[in-house]
Design a protein around this nucleic acid. Structure first.
Lengths: 180, 180
DNA sequence: CTTGGAGTGTCAACATGTCTGACGTAAAAT
DNA sequence: ATTTTACGTCAGACATGTTGACACTCCAAG
């Protein structure tokens, strides 16, 4: 079962990390890390969840709104890829958001099979409310922890992502800077 | 909307953190942190999700199994508190796990209204499989990031939790050390 | 031009997990 | 004896995920 039990902590070569020699990772420590992820994520989503519940929406709506805001004009297929859900699943959420006037879906200019998504004024307004709630929590946690801790937080979380997905998503989000 | 916009970064007293003066938190940085939480958590749960799907279970089962393993003998009410779900929700999950012979539910010795939960041999076996999958990912990310990063990761995530919930849960989980 | 495949989006049906509300039972606390 | 607590269960609703089936669009081959 625990084939990784010994690992290569004692091997100072092949340098995968900087302070590898300090890392004696017991299962107990790892389990605490796992629990930390659970509890932190629970708290992390709770702020937005309250706002969403008032509006009759759920987390799926939030995720769609978030990434449409981050990359205005992105297509349904791209959003599906980022979110990691099926098109059917996403479609129901989008249908609601479009019907409620929060999201605009325009037929693609060059390829008319595409739908380019963007937030309406009202959509942007809800996005700001949701985002500010989450940012407030992250901001507070970062301030308390300090800059070095934030850097570590980022490195660890990036290391947890699927590398393949990370590059795909990063490419997507950075392209946003050059206006979609 | 953004009442926290200015904050107290310029106030070096009342010391909430160590390197507060280095933290110029733009909304863009905070948004990236939010996305990082989303993508990391998505990857973090994916390993266990695959194993669970094979067995016909979901994340709800995993969470119950995890904490029953962490604190054998805990009661239903305690588990409800830790997980943050309703008894109806949890009950459906527990009913299945007990029926499938993964969890044992015993009437409390001192208070017979209580049900003390524990994993059977088979339950422990599944727990190890699930846990090892998640630990492998956390272990890899921690090794790559280094000890200092791990410390920062922990501080930030702890800071994100609701303080009230954190103390309640920590008390619960530490009591486990002295044998439940 | 027509045909057919690939890409994309939509609708329908179903499974899971969550919730609230209501009720019942047993046991502890008052 | 009465009230409160812990647990279980049924019913009904909603959010969100899945497959399957279908329609529209584009493009390329015939």
């Amino acid at each position: 079962m625990s084939v990784h039990a010994h690992g290569s902590v004692t091997g100072p070569n092949a340098g995968p990390a900087r302070s590898d020699h300090l890392l004696f990772l017991t299962d107990e420590q790892l389990r605490q890390g796992i629990e930390l992820m659970f509890f932190a994520y629970q708290a992390f989503t709770s702020d937005a969840d309250r706002i969403l519940a008032e509006q009759g929406y759920g987390r799926a709506h939030h995720r769609a709104i978030h990434f449409i805001n981050r990359w205005p004009g992105l297509t349904v297929a791209q959003l599906i890829d980022v979110l990691g859900v099926t098109k059917q699943s996403l479609n129901r959420v989008l249908r609601q958001l479009v019907a409620d006037g929060l999201v605009e879906s325009r037929v693609g200019a060059t390829d008319r099979r595409h739908r380019n998504l963007s937030l309406t004024e009202r959509g942007q307004s809800l996005e700001r409310a949701l985002s500010e709630a989450q940012r407030a929590r992250v901001r507070q946690a970062w301030r308390e922890a300090g800059a070095e801790a934030v850097s570590g937080f980022r490195r660890v979380l990036e290391g947890m992502m699927e590398p393949e997905k990370r590059s795909r998503v990063m490419e997507l989000l950075e392209r946003r800077g050059g206006r979609g």
